[in-house]
């Protein structure tokens, strides 16, 4: 182990980690925005809408992300129409392609989680809301989605971590995020252990943070389900520790 090399490479790796987090944050935001209508359509849509959405979900869940990334970044250029279109300056950008593919990918997984969560809510909830005169928009906003969020959150926590790992594939299309940076440093210094293990440790820290965040969000969303006694117990035992 060459410790000085390990320490020297840390600033560059941390900058790469910043790019990773940036890419991950944008991916999750756009993915969630896309997943919301898709998930509802997959759970409750009529067949002409539901079936194409299920096809989308099946395709993005059933094929490797690397193929999807290459399909968008290299594949689209095969069509002259795409190269001639006004979108080409954007679609040519590796950063945009990485973001687009990752967002489409996580949207499929997230929509599937949302679909399962919506279907897990007893139908009586929706019927009761309907009977009290609520419109579909209000039913989703006040009754179904808040509960679906809580049911789907544990699975979504895992999805966030798996997307964090998936951002590493952006390095295959020249994005200098954490894995790309590490790979470049290794090519220059030829010290794979030091650099890659440092990178892995940074990934572990991010994963750990995400897991903590998901657990905290879960506790927050299910606070009405905690027995009141537990809270009192905590309160009572507090002075003893203080």
């Amino acid at each position: 182990m060459n410790w000085s090399l390990m320490i020297e490479s840390i600033p560059a790796l941390l900058y790469g980690a910043l790019v990773t987090v940036h890419l991950l944050a944008l991916t999750l935001v756009f993915g969630a925005m896309l997943a919301l209508p898709l998930g509802i359509a997959a759970a409750r849509g009529r067949a002409p809408i539901r079936l194409p959405v299920m096809g989308y979900i099946t395709f993005f869940r059933g094929t490797p992300l690397l193929v999807q990334v290459f399909l968008v970044y290299y594949g689209l250029s095969q069509f002259p129409a795409v190269r001639a279109s006004f979108l080409w300056p954007v679609l040519r950008e590796a950063w945009f392609c990485a973001l687009l593919t990752l967002a489409l990918h996580t949207a499929a997984y997230t929509a599937n989680i949302l679909r399962g969560a919506i279907l897990a809510i007893p139908d009586g909830q929706r019927e009761a809301a309907l009977a009290s005169g609520m419109r579909p928009y209000l039913i989703y906003r006040l009754v179904i989605l808040p509960q679906a969020l809580r049911i789907g959150l544990p699975a979504y926590g895992n999805e966030m971590i798996s997307m964090m790992k998936a951002t590493s594939l952006a390095s295959t299309i020249t994005i200098m995020e954490l894995t790309g940076t590490a790979n470049t440093i290794v090519a220059r210094t030829y010290a794979p252990y030091e650099v890659f293990i440092s990178a892995a440790l940074i990934y572990l820290c991010i994963a750990f943070g995400l897991a903590r965040f998901a657990r905290a969000a879960e506790a927050r969303l299910s606070r009405h389900m905690r027995p009141a006694v537990e809270a009192k117990e905590k309160f009572r035992s507090a002075p003893a520790h203080a």
Binding site: I161, M164, K165, A166, T167, S168, L169, S171, T172, T179, A182, N183, V186, Y190, A191, P192, Y193, F196, I197, A199, A200, Y203, L204, A207, F208
Partner: peptide
């Protein structure tokens, strides 16, 4: 388990490949 689940698969492959070669 923690390390294998928290590290990108691509990075594990790179570590084994380049690390193994060295």
């Amino acid at each position: 388990s923690l390390v294998m689940r928290g590290t990108p698969e691509l990075l594990v492959i790179l570590i084994v490949y380049f690390g193994g070669t060295v």
